[in-house]
């Protein structure tokens, strides 16, 4: 296996970014809407973790 250099990683990242920048508008909109769904899931998960502690459970 060839060793992967930092430069290789930056180059790959740049290529991926370039692909995303040049996506057609409709595909970009799809991507933004998918990211919204993921974001909402994360917000919901965070909200459930931030719920105030159940005092009865604490007493038990």
């Amino acid at each position: 296996m060839n060793p992967c250099t930092l430069q290789d990683l930056y180059k790959a990242k740049q290529i991926r970014r370039g692909r995303l920048v040049n996506l057609p508008i409709d595909q970009k909109v799809d991507l933004i809407e998918k990211l919204q769904e993921l974001g909402r899931t994360m917000v919901r998960a965070r909200a459930s973790l931030e719920k105030p502690a159940d005092k009865d459970a604490e007493a038990r």
Binding site: K28, I32, L35, Q36
Partner: peptide, 14 residues
């Protein structure tokens, strides 16, 4: 952000 993402790399926005 939505307008920006039509020109640059898209990311999450609500």
């Amino acid at each position: 952000a939505v307008a920006a993402f039509l020109y640059i790399e898209p990311a999450a926005t609500f």
